[in-house]
Design a protein around this nucleic acid. Structure first.
Length: 488
RNA sequence: CGGGGAGUGGCGCAGCCCGGUAGCGCAUUCGCUUUGGGAGCGAAGGGUCGCAGGUUCAAAUCCUGUCUCCCCGACCA
């Protein structure tokens, strides 16, 4: 195991990869562009799933599951949608292999009449299904979510942030009215904002995407945008108002109270394992991963310290009692009783894995009725009384959760600028990076020009109120400043 | 898909230029000593050198092809 996580500054990518590796979250698979999520990483994702899933249920949604394979013809039904995804699809063309001297080859006789696409997203197959589910206004709304894997044949991949196959959830809802669909879109965006901020302790900016950044097939794409420690933005979640595009493409109509047949209004929304990448880049430091208590698979680890066998039993017994007490309070706690590692090694290892709180217990502590408590986020250590440890830890976990969010928010604010001129924009982008608010004339041409010249994109048109002014590039009128950044 | 770098025991690397039976550190196993910030000594096990061809008496090393990974671009959650 490496002694240290690599220093940042120049080598942010390497720093990121080292954290993923040292924290045992995931590793590259021999399969091109794919990733193996290790048990520790999966435990983290499961906690995220649990939190999100509960929020979906609380807002009236149910889970369902749709096929992995999508007939090619489905994908061609919505013009914008095809254009967006056609270039990155895995296609199944055959159904059999046959043995050929020691190996296998694709059996040419098994060619499929219609190729199957491995879903890059499920709008098409779901809307094809919804057609049969929806007859009357009484069948609406349909509020369904699916937890699934999807495949996008990306040119370049990066662990968690962009892999060929990734895990996600995709919500797909159908509504009788436009307003109801828009409300749903915004409601789910708010769910994502709440999850990012309250669970992940990752502050986000909410807003709407420009036309060029919009989801293929959507009328409006809303998003949450987070800022990573290297000053690059990460699109952490999207919620789309799909209008009637998919209803038209898949002929999904319902008979309304007034007897008229009407097209259904749609939304879709999703977040993926990319959130784990965002979590890593939001909080981690040079000691490794830092996890917010609400999501940490293990919230507290107890490290026993001893010299002689008698001491080992003594501290383990002391530690066991604390484990029981914390478990009874619903704290996820582990006692690290491995005898083949020294305490110092364990300290470093648990820090690299991001466990929010560490309790060290030596004979001295048992003697005095104390424990040593160490916070992962601040790396501060203090000796506290063993009595009342349960309630202290409960409140400390909450404090850490809160402090992580505040620290991340402060970092983001330090990395956020507001500029008036294009020159200023370029120099801030060059020297500081981060989020930059600037006026823009609302055209794709200007947006494209800025992107080509600076690599910065419009992350979103924020919901926040702003004042009008003039586009920093063309001088044309602008209603309010929009959010720019270089992005992952 | 363009430009750059790299694939050698589980991990990190040396060896390659100049061909001659594969080495170091960490990890693993065993023993003893250690244990309040990544332990020490001794012994042992483990590799068709990414893959496929070619040159050669002989290939990790030279040649050709191919796959994968990393970094920078274009594309994207």
């Amino acid at each position: 195991m490496a002694k240290n996580i690599t220093p940042r500054e120049k080598d942010y990518s390497q720093w990121y990869l080292d954290i993923v590796k040292e924290a045992q979250l995931a590793e590259h698979s021999p399969v091109r562009g794919c990733m193996v999520i290790k048990p520790t990483g999966m435990a983290l994702w499961e906690n995220m799933q649990t939190g999100l899933d509960q929020m979906f249920k609380d807002t009236g949604h149910q889970n369902a599951y749709f096929p992995l394979f999508i007939p090619k013809s489905f994908l061609s039904k919505e013009a914008q949608h095809v254009e967006g995804f056609a270039k990155e699809c895995a296609v199944v063309t055959h159904s059999r292999l046959k043995a050929v001297d020691g190996g296998v080859e694709v059996d040419p006789d098994s060619r499929l009449d219609e190729e199957l696409i491995v879903r890059p997203t499920s709008e098409t197959i779901i809307w094809d299904t919804y057609r049969n589910w929806i007859q009357s206004y009484r069948d609406l709304p349909i509020l369904v979510n699916q937890w699934a894997n999807v495949v996008r044949w990306e040119m370049r991949t990066r662990l968690f942030l962009r892999t060929m196959e990734f895990l996600w959830q995709e919500g797909h809802t159908a509504h009788a009215t436009k307003q109801e669909a828009i409300d749903e879109t915004l409601q789910m965006l708010e769910v994502y904002r709440t999850f990012a901020e309250d669970y992940m302790a990752m502050p986000v900016i909410t807003g709407v995407k420009t036309e060029s950044e919009r989801f293929a097939g959507a009328e409006d794409t809303y998003c949450i945008e987070a800022l990573m420690q290297d000053g690059k933005a990460l699109q952490a979640g999207t919620s789309h108002f799909l209008g009637q595009n998919f209803a038209k493409a898949f002929d999904v109509k319902f008979q309304d109270k007034d007897g008229d047949h009407k097209l259904v209004w749609a939304t879709s929304w999703g977040v993926s394992t990319r959130l784990i990448g965002g979590l890593i880049m939001t909080h981690s430091d040079d000691q490794g991963l830092v996890l917010p208590p609400k999501l940490a698979p293990t919230q507290v680890v107890i490290v026993p310290i001893y010299r002689k066998d008698g001491e080992r039993e003594l501290v383990l017994e002391y530690g066991d009692a604390i484990v029981k007490e914390l478990k009874a309070l619903g704290v996820r706690v582990k006692l690290d009783d491995r005898d083949n590692f020294k305490p110092g090694f364990k300290f470093a290892e648990h820090e690299a894995r991001g466990i929010p709180l560490r309790i060290a217990i030596g004979p001295r502590d048992v003697q005095n009725g104390n424990v040593e408590l160490a916070r992962r986020d601040t790396l501060n250590k203090e000796v506290v009384s063993r009595d009342g440890i349960g309630s202290l830890i409960k409140s400390l976990l909450e404090t850490i959760q809160f402090d992580l969010f505040e620290a991340a928010k402060t970092r983001r604010e330090e990395m956020t600028s507001e500029v008036e001129s294009y020159e200023e924009f370029k120099s801030v982008l060059e020297e500081k990076g981060g989020f930059i608010y600037a006026h823009w004339d609302g055209t794709s041409e200007t947006e494209e020009r800025i992107k080509n010249e600076t690599k910065a994109t419009i992350r979103c048109i924020p919901f926040e109120k702003g004042t009008s002014g003039n586009c920093m590039v063309t001088g044309k009128p602008s209603l309010k400043k929009v959010l720019f950044a270089k992005a992952y």
